[in-house]
Structures are given as structure tokens and as C-alpha cells.
Design a protein around this nucleic acid. Structure first.
Lengths: 138, 138
DNA sequence: GTCATTGCAAATGCTTTGCAGTGCC
DNA sequence: GGCACTGCAAAGCATTTGCAATGAC
């Protein structure tokens, strides 16, 4: 069983067939599916699952802090189950493929006090972009 | 006249009343309007300007590299005329207010070779989040 | 049995597109 | 005068919402 599913069960999350399937789809490394992709993969296991249920479940998992919402292109959001190790994303400018990356140092430290405008800065998200090996050669 | 307008003229950009107004709206520091906000401000000066024209013009300015498209929340994109000095953004988690910031060092350097997956990494965009002074007190 | 969760379909928000008319160069 | 640009309205995509039916606890 997936780690995610196990954690949710431990947290007393009400379990239904739909929720289980969504949680199962969101398992693994470098997984960054759109809601639509999650729905397609969920449908393969549970044909009658509704799109709205997928959206509801994803929002709830985000609210629980069990998955992360990633917004790279202003189009469909992507969902990343790797919520328990802080990381950043590397995105291919050609095909959109994403990888989880772990830059050295804390990005927050790069923002000097004089550049904080009195904000209580608590988080930094970084998106690296470039061509992946496949897109470089072709 | 705004710098932006001047540059566009120099580049031989076909000038129309609509385009001029959009370019004029996108002038200043820490300006990050949504397409809708640009449209509202443009309408104040040129009542008959169409929303689609604003969208067209914005896309073109982005393609020309004269403005930057910023996507902070997966909702409406924002447009930033400060395209000629690389910078990052600081966003208030409460009200969404944005500031341009200039972190120390090049964010690209924080990504070690072993974390690049063979990508030709060329760009890093950073979004810092936290509560602004107004949202902290209230 | 109760009440959260689901499915369906309609509504929403943002953006793009098709096409006929306008006006810049 | 040609052709790029505009306006309008309709279409498109991603997402959210309302509500009655279902099913987990």
C-alpha cells in the first residue's frame, strides 16, 4: 500500500473507493499529474469516478498537506505527492516534463532584509527551466 | 512617455490607440496587473477597447520580451513591465500584493550538476511568500 | 441512521478564436 | 491600398458549485 494511503488512514480520513484510487494514483517519485491525468488513471481502476470527485479529493489532500499543488505554466495545475521532503522543480521548456530537485542552501536566505518590504517571508518556491535531454537532441 | 512605449516605437511596432493605451497602463515599478485590470485601466482612457485586444496585445508584448507573465496562484496571470532587469517576486499570502525583489546570488548556482538530470538549465524563477505588513497586523 | 461523500450537470473564471470591418503605414 | 489590427460574440479549457442519491462509520 502506498505511503500516502497509509498516512491518510492513520489520520482518520474517511475512506471510500474513489479516495483510495486517487491516493493510489498519486504514488511514486517525480509524479506530477494534472487533475485530468489523475482522473484518467483513476478511471482505469474505477470507471464510474466523477471528475468533480477527483477535484474535490485533490483539494482536500492539498488542504491536509499531503500533496502539493504545482503551477508551472498557467494552464492546468499539477499535483505532487512528495509533500514531506521540501524540494523544488525542474521543468523542460520543450515538453513540460518535470523532475523534483533539491538545490543546495535555503532559497529564503538569498533574500536580504532590505528586500523584504516588511513581509514575514516564510516560503520560497523555485522553478528551474531548461531543455531536457530528449528535447535538446531533437 | 513611458520607456516601454518608446522601446516599442523604436522596434517598429505598429502603433494603434489600443496598443498605446495598454503600453501606457503597463508603466512603473511593482506593477503586476491581471489582464482584466489592464483592461479596466485601458477602458478608462479608451472606452471602446475590447478585452480580446488587451489579451492579444499582452501576448504580443510577452512574445517580444517587453513584459513578463507572472503566475502566482493558478488564477489570472499577471503582467510585469519590468522585463529588462531580472528579478523575482515576493507575494503576500494574505492579500496577493506583489513586490519585485532582487535576491543575492544567481539562483541557478544553487542547483548542483547532479540534480540537473541532463537538462540544459537556463532560467530560475523564484516566488517568495509571506504576510505583508498590512496582513500581519490585522 | 446520520451525515459526509459522490455523481451529474450546469455554472464560473480566464483566455482564445473566427470573422467581418477598420485604420495604420 | 494592403494587410495587420480591432471588436464582437462564441467557443474553449480548467475548475467549482448545487443538489439529490449513496454509502462509510
Amino acid at each position: 500500500m502506498s505511503d500516502l494511503l497509509e498516512r491518510l488512514r492513520d489520520r482518520g480520513w474517511r475512506m471510500t473507493a474513489q479516495r483510495r484510487v486517487v491516493a493510489e494514483v498519486l504514488d511514486g517519485d517525480h509524479v506530477h499529474y494534472t487533475a485530468d491525468e489523475v482522473h484518467a488513471r483513476a478511471t482505469a481502476r474505477l470507471p464510474e469516478i466523477a471528475r468533480a470527485t477527483v477535484y474535490n479529493t485533490l483539494s482536500e489532500l492539498v488542504a491536509l498537506g499531503e500533496i502539493i499543488e504545482v503551477n508551472t505554466d498557467g494552464r492546468a495545475k499539477r499535483y505532487d505527492p512528495n509533500a514531506h521532503h521540501t524540494h523544488q522543480h525542474l521543468v523542460c521548456s520543450g515538453c513540460g516534463t518535470m523532475r523534483d530537485v533539491h538545490p543546495s542552501g535555503d532559497p529564503l536566505h538569498a533574500l536580504p532584509e532590505g528586500e523584504r518590504y516588511g513581509f514575514a517571508v516564510s516560503e520560497a518556491t523555485v522553478i528551474y527551466r531548461g531543455l531536457c535531454p530528449d528535447c535538446t537532441t531533437s
